Computed example of a mutant assay.
Amino acid sequence: MSLPPVDTPLYNHPLPAIEDWLRLKGCQQDKTNLHHWYVQRSNWEAELWLEVDSLAVRYIAAGLGGKDIQRSFKYSLSRKDLEDAIFSGP
């Protein structure tokens, strides 16, 4: 499936396109909880959840004292904005 232009809000992407995008960004889907994804980079790792109105991200042990950092991004943001915000790390 081809992805809509990068400036398209995520809410205008069909679910299979969002899943393809996450795979292209190196995310792995949980086989039992299909709305749950995991991504690992050299210096951080995160869990992502496709919620009803937003994409939630939890950067694992990325905060002070090894605490998790959790953020939520509305689907009204463009895919480009979400890429920049999520995949640049905590």
Rank of each mutant, 00 (worst) to 15 (best):
K74P: 13
S76Y: 11
P5G: 01
K67E: 15
D7T: 14
H13I: 09
F73Q: 02
I18D: 03
N33F: 12
Q40R: 11
A46H: 03
L24Y: 02
H35N: 14
D84Y: 05
S54R: 09
Q29T: 00
L15R: 12
F87I: 01
I18S: 05
A17P: 01
T8Q: 01
S88Y: 05
E19P: 11
A46S: 10
E83Q: 05
Q29C: 01
W21M: 06
N43A: 12
T32M: 14
Y11S: 14
V57I: 03
L82P: 10
L24E: 15
L50A: 01
I69K: 03
W37S: 01
E19Y: 14
W44G: 06
Q28W: 07
Q28E: 09
D53H: 12
V57S: 02
Q70L: 13
R71G: 01
V39K: 11
F73S: 03
I60L: 13
S76C: 07
Y59T: 04
P9A: 02
E47R: 13
P4I: 00
Q28Y: 06
P4H: 00
A56P: 01
P14G: 05
L82W: 04
Q28T: 12
F73A: 02
V57M: 02
D20L: 15
L34P: 03
P9H: 02
S78M: 02
M1R: 05
R58S: 06
D20E: 15
Y11E: 14
E45T: 13
R23S: 06
D84S: 10
P90D: 01
P5H: 01
K67M: 15
P14R: 11
S88L: 06
G66S: 09
E45I: 04
G65K: 09
F73N: 06
S42L: 14
V6T: 11
R71D: 05
